[in-house]
Design a protein around this nucleic acid. Structure first.
Length: 258
DNA sequence: CCAATTGTTCATAT
DNA sequence: TATATGAACAATTG
């Protein structure tokens, strides 16, 4: 699930649930999600600290404390939820942060593809994010165009490559390309200035709606709402959508509109 | 048992 | 070097 809009939603969960609150207790129920630290090290680093304004870059969430920064990635199935400490932990609640008598932030993840990192200072934060391109929400038109046209591969591969542009995943890339009327297989380097402009505009519009919804919404008018239909039809022209495989991922597109 | 799944990374091939 | 591909990671579903 988690692409940029989902992670932005998790950032808001962290903000409303825990910003300004002191971390009273850290409970690790599954050490498999900890990267490069032990339970004790995580506790020692965070307990007694206060969560400050959280940040997001691409699909990464930075939980700052004024001291060490907790860095989170949600893989395909992770989420961040705000619960009551007395609520029974669910099977996939991996780490619990008690921040008030009645508030507990939970890192929940079914598959444990990513997890939690701890950065002692800004240079360690930078090291963790060093391979990330500009954030898809923050990038300006010129940077966007420069990043894309420098690529020789397909435009979909470029859009989902986090080192080119950070935040777009498989669903968003298909959705944006469909709206912009561009085939996923088009070479990024062959895009005209007009193509790039359209792509940028649709990326921003799509992101804005998806961030408002907290996910890439499976609406009827969106391509995403039909990609799992048995015989998917294009919500714009009604023709059958085509499925293929690109960059190792399931890709859906409309041969008529794109 | 097989394939597939929204993400990332690594090895290998081109 | 840059890019493409498939495997691996883990867990679950069809």
């Amino acid at each position: 699930m988690p692409e940029l809009p989902d992670v932005e939603g998790f950032r808001k969960v962290l903000e409303s649930c825990a910003k300004g609150k002191i971390i009273q207790r850290v409970d690790v129920r599954d050490t498999g999600v900890l990267h490069g630290m032990s339970t004790g090290q995580l506790r020692d680093a965070l307990e007694g600290r206060r969560f400050t304004e959280p940040e997001r870059h691409g699909k990464w969430l930075l939980a700052r404390t004024g001291g060490p920064t907790l860095v989170l990635h949600f893989g395909m199935t992770g989420q961040l939820v705000c619960s009551h400490p007395d609520d029974a932990a669910e099977a996939h609640d991996r780490v619990l942060f008690t921040v008030a008598r009645d508030r507990q932030l939970r890192y929940r993840d079914q598959r444990k593809l990513q997890g939690l990192w701890l950065a002692d200072d800004e240079s360690e934060v930078a090291r963790l994010l060093e391979r990330q391109g500009p954030d898809a929400m923050a990038v300006n038109r010129k940077e966007f165009e420069a990043a894309l046209t420098a690529r020789r591969g397909s435009v979909k591969t470029a859009l989902t490559d986090q080192s080119v542009l950070a935040g777009l995943g498989n669903l968003l890339a298909d959705e944006i390309l469909w709206r912009a009327g561009l085939r996923p297989t088009r070479k990024a380097g062959d895009l005209t200035e007009d193509d790039c402009g359209r792509l940028y505009t649709h990326m921003r519009r799509t992101l804005r709606s998806a961030v408002a919804a907290g996910c890439v919404p499976p609406r009827d008018s969106w391509l995403t709402g039909h990609r799992d239909d048995p015989a998917p039809a294009c919500p714009r022209c009604g023709n059958s959508l085509r499925r293929s495989r690109l960059a190792g991922r399931g890709t859906v597109w409309c041969p008529q509109c794109q």
